[in-house]
Simulated assay, not measured.
Amino acid sequence: MTITNQDELDGLKEIGRIVANTMQAMAKAMEPGMTTRELDEIGRALLEREGALSAPQSTYDFPGATCISVNEEIAHGIPGDRVIAADDLVNIDVSASKNGYFADTGATYRVAPVRPSLDRLCRDGRQAMQIGIAQVGSGRPLAGIGRAIGKFAERRGYTLIRNLASHGIGRALHEEPAEIPTWPARGEKRRIHRGLVLTVEPFLSRGGLWATEADDGWTLYSEPRAPVVQYEHTVVATDRGAMVVTLPG
């Protein structure tokens, strides 16, 4: 989607606030002994209260209102009977629509107590996203996002999952430009235009290179197996840089 007027921006900001508030409330409620289904029900209730529709459910018939991925699951985890335990890495990904506008946000949380190495991975994962967001602006190359994140990852000794990309969003969950690399990609020649709405969502890992799909047709795992974190915002490209719309409020 390309933002062309204030009404469109206001609509995008509204759903951005809703998904951000939902994710934060889920994270605050999460505790050892809770199942991922119970955590998902909290998200479902919050979205319904705001008059928003779960995007994975409405778009892809996903079997949950949100995606909750624990430890070896790195994305698209199906909420179910899995019990959340201390020292788990839990990724919460919330995407939804309201009044025809879509927004998408995600973050990886630690369930205390946690190992210092996982704390560091999460901190660096969030920084990798922020570094990518800093490359967004009118007229800038899309490849700049992946180049900057790649330099950061290499410097810190991390790898990046290279088949889970950022994407356009706004009037649908996934739009053009599709498959925006969050890793260095030599063949990427597209540029960012003013008003473009996109996600920035690198998957930072301590050894993982690819995402592979489980037999359930949804859940993704790291190959080779390694800890992975993901942080994601929906942003709008402006002449002054990126405007983040998935902010709580």
Rank of each mutant, 00 (worst) to 15 (best):
T105F: 00
S97T: 14
I149M: 00
A165Y: 10
G139A: 07
Q130V: 04
I161F: 00
A128F: 08
R140C: 03
G125D: 06
I74L: 10
H174P: 00
G139E: 09
A75L: 11
F152E: 04
E179M: 15
F152S: 06
H174Q: 10
I149K: 00
P177K: 02
I169C: 12
V111K: 03
D81M: 11
A143F: 01
G144N: 05
S97D: 01
E73M: 14
G157D: 10
S97E: 12
D119V: 15
I149T: 02
I145L: 05
A128D: 08
L164P: 01
D104P: 00
N99C: 05
G137R: 14
A134P: 04
L89E: 05
Q127W: 04
N99V: 03
D93I: 13
G150P: 00
A103Y: 09
A103T: 10
G170A: 06
G125V: 11
W183Q: 08
R123E: 13
I180C: 07
A112I: 07
F102S: 03
V136K: 07
A178E: 06
S97P: 06
E72C: 01
T105D: 03
G132A: 09
A96T: 12
G132D: 06
D93M: 08
E175L: 14
V136W: 10
R162W: 00
V94C: 01
P184V: 05
R115K: 14
S117H: 06
Q127R: 15
S97F: 02
I180P: 02
I180R: 04
G77I: 13
A85E: 15
F152V: 08
Q127L: 15
H174T: 13
A112T: 13
F152Q: 07
K151I: 11
G157Y: 11
L142I: 12
S138Y: 13
F102C: 09
L121F: 06
W183M: 11
P184N: 08
Y158T: 12
R110H: 04
A134S: 15
A75P: 04
R82S: 03
G144I: 01
L164N: 08
A143P: 01
H76S: 07
W183S: 10
R110N: 07
A85K: 15
N91H: 13
F102D: 00
Y101W: 12
A103Q: 07
A143K: 15
A96Y: 03
A178G: 05
R162P: 01
A86R: 14
E179Y: 14
E73K: 12
E72W: 04
L173G: 10
I133A: 06
V136E: 09
S138N: 15
T108I: 09
G146S: 04
I145D: 00
A85M: 13
V136N: 08
R171T: 14
A103K: 08
H167V: 04
D81H: 11
A143E: 05
N163P: 12
S138W: 09
A165M: 13
D119C: 06
I133M: 08
F152W: 03
E179V: 09
I131T: 12
R171P: 03
A86W: 02
N99S: 14
L164S: 08
A148P: 02
L118Y: 12
P184S: 05
G100E: 11
I131W: 01
I161T: 14
F152A: 09
A103P: 08
N163R: 10
T105I: 12
R147L: 10
R156G: 09
K98E: 05
